[in-house]
């Protein structure tokens, strides 16, 4: 599974809502992620991708879209 598909799968499980097909679409504006689903998403990304995300990286905009999440994860490789 490629990273984008993996992120989408995690999002489906966390948000329990339809995921927008456009990876650039805001997950906040589209109502997929609320303030309380966001910490859950970060925890799942850490466990699924085997990384520890430092607090300093927890700017909500880094997790605003599938594309941004993918870019952040790529930057951690």
């Amino acid at each position: 599974m490629n990273p984008q598909a993996q992120i989408t799968e995690i999002l489906k499980q966390v948000a329990k809502k339809p995921i927008p097909p456009d990876p650039g679409e805001s997950l906040f504006d589209s109502g997929v992620l609320d303030s309380f689903a966001l910490p859950e998403l970060v925890s799942r990304l850490e466990s699924e991708f085997g990384i520890s995300i430092p607090d300093a990286d927890l700017a909500p905009r880094k997790f605003e879209s599938i594309a941004r999440i993918e870019a952040y994860l790529e930057s951690r490789r």
Binding site: S35, F36, L38, P39, V42, L58, A59
Partner: peptide, 13 residues
Amino acid sequence: MNGRSVILQASRK
């Protein structure tokens, strides 16, 4: 308030 940042940081810190 940036609610997303507050909740994200508080839920970990």
